[in-house]
Simulated scan of single mutants.
Amino acid sequence: YALTGTRDTPCNGDTQHLFRSRDLAAWEYVDRFYESDRRWTSGKDDCSCPDFFELGSKRILLHYCHHHPHGSRYYLGRFEDQRFYPEAFDRINWPGGNLHAPRTMLDEKGRRILFANLNEGRSMNACVASGWMGVLSLPVIISLAPDRNTICYEPVPELQAFRQDLAQRQEVGIGTDMEIPLPEARGDCLELDLEMEPRGASEFGLKVRCAPDGSEETLVSFTLEPPTIQIDFQKASLRDDLTYHQDPRIQAAPFDLKQGDCVKLRIFLDRSVLEVFAGDQRYLVQRIFPTHPDGLDVKLYSRGGPTYVRRLRAWQMGGMIVTPDHDIRPKESG
């Protein structure tokens, strides 16, 4: 079987067409695989790079849309008589983000692992001049949420093999409109793991890749009105050749949160790549390109009221090597 991503007749939006073959040479058209009823998507949307598979008790159609607001998203639904019936929809990539054309695999442990191409953010001329372009996301485990209308995201536990030099704090209070530097967590290749609780704050979170003079910084934060998880990259870079300047420079996704809730936040920073896991509800990715050579500071912050940090753990993340038998192993520290 094969799916072709396309648009339907004018203004009828995204659809897929199902084909089948016995020899992969001669193909027979079966039917439309699904029809969009316009509840979630616009008449100009397409359904590119489809990946269709079973997830728990549901079927999921993972895909990418090129129409603004473009990005990666999915339908959840049922599959009957060679036809898919979408019952729920959500985005993975939100306007301004860099997650593109996700694909999945089922590993030997039965886990559904998602990988995605991350859009550059740099202009083509900048990529050519640098001699490279393109990077993949971390491997992410996806599963069906208890409500069966959304999916959960979790970085694969194998990433823990790259952790080095643990630094941690507990029971940290952040005052209203205050920042707390974390000198023990400086770096451009980090894993950060936090449990935070707003106690009157309207926005709270972390700043990463902060320049000493304040010229560059990227904010990862929760907001309460409306409740969101967001990456604010308005000051991420002083470069003038970044194509994401054309997009909103705050990537924000809805998040279930209210005052007093304890939220978990995991951040993976790998130089120009920032990957954020907000509990298991949201997974956001952003390319950032700081220019300041000493832009390595990390800071906690709270706005509009105080925030309590129950726990903070930070690791420097090591690189990896590929052995002659193609086994991937963490580099030894030092």
Rank of each mutant, 00 (worst) to 15 (best):
G5Q: 08
D8T: 04
F19H: 12
D23W: 13
L24A: 12
W27L: 13
D31N: 14
S36I: 03
R38P: 02
R38T: 03
W40G: 03
K44D: 15
C49Q: 13
G56R: 01
R59M: 15
C65V: 10
H67V: 09
H70P: 02
G77N: 07
R83L: 01
P86D: 10
E87N: 08
A88G: 03
W94T: 01
P95R: 03
L99F: 13
D107T: 02
G110I: 09
R111P: 07
N117P: 02
L118C: 09
E120P: 04
V140F: 08
S143E: 15
S143P: 08
P146M: 09
D147H: 04
N149F: 06
Y153E: 11
Y153M: 09
E158L: 11
F162N: 03
L166A: 05
G173C: 08
I174V: 14
M178S: 14
L182Y: 07
P183Q: 08
R186W: 13
G187V: 04
D193K: 09
L194N: 03
P198R: 00
P198L: 00
S215F: 05
L219F: 14
T228K: 00
Q230N: 09
K235N: 15
K235P: 10
T243R: 08
Y244F: 15
P248V: 07
I250R: 07
Q251T: 13
G260F: 01
D261I: 02
V263L: 02
V263H: 02
K264Q: 14
I267Q: 09
R271E: 15
S272E: 13
V273A: 06
L274M: 11
L284I: 07
R287P: 06
P290T: 02
H292C: 12
D294T: 01
D297S: 12
G304F: 00
G304C: 00
G305T: 01
Y308T: 02
R311F: 04
R313M: 14
I321P: 04
I321L: 15
V322S: 07
D325G: 04
H326T: 15
I328S: 04
